[in-house]
Write a protein that binds this DNA or RNA. Structure first.
Lengths: 232, 232
DNA sequence: TAATGAAAAGGACATATGTCCCAAAAAGGA
DNA sequence: TCCTTTTTGGGACATATGTCCTTTTCATTA
């Protein structure tokens, strides 16, 4: 993570997302601007959280670890999103693992500051409420989805989500195989089984696989294979 | 549903749960007091919601329908709980089906009133936020659970939850078999499979089944069979 | 280059669960 | 009471997925 000292950029972003409308005193809020590289971990489950974060650029993956050391993909988030709402309100440690998918820009605002100056500001509270309610609604949907979706559905959806975030969409898209194990974990399945699914999609000419890449041959069919599942 | 006209009881409940601390003007809030009978449906998915509800007595089941007409048990709630938060904040139709497990008492407060007088009240907003955050945290946990729990786990847990809410816990507990289909739906499985699971638990002498009842023979083993799953 | 060891892929089998359908049982009606 | 219809239970099989272990591939070192 790299702190960026660029008050002009910060100001621009604040304008863009109407951040100032959320707070009482618009100027001199102790914001930090943070940049993360692809795959960099932003928050680890269990750590104490110090700042509320606003995702303003890039795409972020939210996962949750389960007993066996595996992890489960909860959702992807995009700008403008709030990270740390539960932790701020309920005073609990970080609930999920948060990781940058591509290059990301986040704004941070210390909990201490919020608790001192903004915690009773209705505008701020409304913003929080709306975001948390949205997440709850999404999570409920996801619960349902988990009962309907096969690994193939989820993998197809995951592939599309991850790849469409890549900038180099020139002619066929690459994806290293080195992280197939990680993908299996994210989808809540085993390496063995994901391999089976990849094999099956390859047979159907929906994706193509060689040494170090997976390439999508047929987006339409991949979309069908996802069966409408979306990690929005 | 029966409206109860008993301002004394209402007052007592308001005191008990410190409801007045949540609102600005403590007196003359247009509360209604509503009573539901066991298994009565409180809210149907998709309907327009008019009042925020507070569960103050009894136990309520929250479910969500999925494509195939099946439904999925989301959670049980107990006093003091808020029903309708997402609907109030996001202005969406009722998201889940809400049904009384036993005799329930709820307080209602019209959305109109809230939007007019309380929507910017920080105390009220805090209460809402806390409850929604709690639900979100629970839902995330449940998502994980759904990936770990077998139907046997869920059924064992469900049985214990439902039965412990019954008052007549004298010597062995009864449960009509007529609703096994409904239970299967609630657990997100088929009648056929739930039958298998019941059969298996019967074989192990954990439960006993005759014409019209299921009786728990061994709570400890049933608890083990639930594998720690709790629909709190 | 050949031997060795680590990483990746895949075969074989087990389990949980869904689907389909038939048989047993219960409920009604003549 | 006996026959018909409906309801309930369960057999048989299919599919998705997990576990375990062997084979294959690939890189590394003598």
């Amino acid at each position: 993570m790299k702190y960026i000292q660029d008050s002009e950029l910060l100001e621009k972003i604040i304008q863009q997302y109407h951040v100032e409308e959320m707070f009482d005193q618009t100027k001199q809020l102790p914001f930090t601007l943070q940049q993360y590289t692809p795959d960099e971990i932003i928050l680890l489950e269990g750590m104490e959280m110090q700042s509320l974060l606003f995702l303003v650029e890039g795409k972020v993956r939210i996962t949750s670890s389960i007993a066996t050391g595996r992890s489960l993909l909860l959702r992807f988030i995009h700008p403008f999103s709030i990270i740390g709402d539960i932790e701020l309100i309920r005073d609990v440690p970080v609930q999920s693992q948060v990781q940058a998918v591509n290059e990301c820009l986040l704004i941070g605002l210390p909990f201490d500051y919020i608790k001192q100056y903004e915690i009773d500001n209705p505008k701020f509270l409304h913003t929080l409420l709306e975001h948390v309610c949205y997440k709850l609604q999404t999570c409920t949907t996801a619960s349902r989805v988990n009962l309907l979706a096969s690994v193939e559905n989820k993998f197809a959806s995951y592939l599309m989500s991850t790849i469409s975030a890549e900038p180099n969409n020139n002619f066929g898209i690459e994806l290293t195989t080195s992280n197939i194990k990680e993908m299996a974990n994210l989808l809540g399945t085993t390496y063995r089984h994901l391999n089976r699914v990849i094999h099956s999609l390859t047979q159907k000419n929906i994706i193509e696989r060689d040494k170090n890449s997976i390439r999508i041959l047929n987006w339409d069919d991949l979309d069908k294979a996802s069966n409408g599942i979306r990690y929005k």
